[in-house]
């Protein structure tokens, strides 16, 4: 994709994302009813869950890109993995901030070491370590391979985080979708959640495109500098 063809795509994605964000906020605060037990604070759910979904998607891309990098040796996949990991950490951080803000008025504590919260925190630490590994071994083929292996192994925690509320008794609420009998959301809440999920997916695409472009430009700068030095 050349420079001229990618800019209208950025613009289009930005416009669509801003429109979707507006629709999401309208649905969250105007249309969707307030939850009976928790009250207004339950509306954090519509940003908390999509943030977690986006983080999972980002780490899934890290895993796939790392596998392709190990197979092909093409540095573009390594850059894609690194870019996606950074965004995944951003969204995991948002999950770890919005979660306690929701927990405090409902559970009366900001944090508790239950299975869902602990595995989410471990996920955050894994990818922080992944980025640290990348930065300490910058521009090294071997370092990139180590990071790729780490990125693939680290992804094992994602299904554990997802399944933790099914496998263990936790303070965290049971799954509201695809959960046990009796669990579930009102149709208006499901619709709002779906719109929020789509919005955050678009947002993720934009951030990934921007971050990947930064990685490519950095490597171009390094390449030209090395050519000039030699």
């Amino acid at each position: 994709m050349n420079k001229k063809s990618i800019e209208p795509l950025y613009l289009l994605l930005l416009i669509v994302t801003f429109l979707l964000m507006g629709i999401s906020l309208y649905l969250i605060f105007i249309v969707t009813p307030t939850e009976r037990t928790m009250g207004e604070v339950q509306k954090i759910f519509y940003f908390h869950v999509p943030s977690a979904w986006t983080a999972f998607l980002a780490f899934f891309i890290v895993c796939i890109a790392s596998i392709v990098f190990l197979k092909t040796g093409d540095a573009k996949w390594d850059k894609l993995a690194g870019s996606s990991a950074e965004i995944g950490i951003l969204f995991t951080t948002l999950v770890l901030i919005t979660g306690p803000l929701w927990a405090k008025p409902v559970w009366h504590v900001y944090w508790t070491w239950d299975a869902r919260l602990t595995t989410s925190f471990i996920l955050w630490l894994i990818y922080i370590a992944y980025l640290m590994l990348r930065s300490y071994t910058a521009d090294s083929e071997r370092g990139a391979r180590f990071a790729a292996v780490f990125g693939i192994i680290g992804f094992i925690d994602v299904p554990i985080v997802y399944m933790s509320i099914r496998w263990w008794r936790t303070l965290h609420p049971s799954p509201v979708m695809a959960g046990n009998e009796g669990s579930g959301l009102a149709p208006e809440m499901v619709r709002t959640l779906m719109v929020s999920l789509v919005t955050f997916t678009f947002l993720f695409c934009i951030l990934l495109m921007f971050r990947y472009k930064v990685a490519m430009l950095k490597s171009t700068v390094d390449y030209i500098k090395s050519k000039m030095d030699s």
Binding site: M38, G39, E40, V41, K43, I44, F47, H48, S51, L90, T93, L94, I97, T98, L101, W102, K104, P105, L203, I206, L207, F210, R211, V214
Partner: peptide, 26 residues
């Protein structure tokens, strides 16, 4: 902090973080 305070803080954190990250990338 009341329910609305927690709600406001959570949404503000998300918006500010995403905005700062997007601007820094640009």
């Amino acid at each position: 902090m009341g329910n609305l305070g927690f709600l406001f803080t959570a949404y503000s954190v998300v918006w500010v973080a995403l905005f700062i990250y997007l601007v820094s990338l640009a």
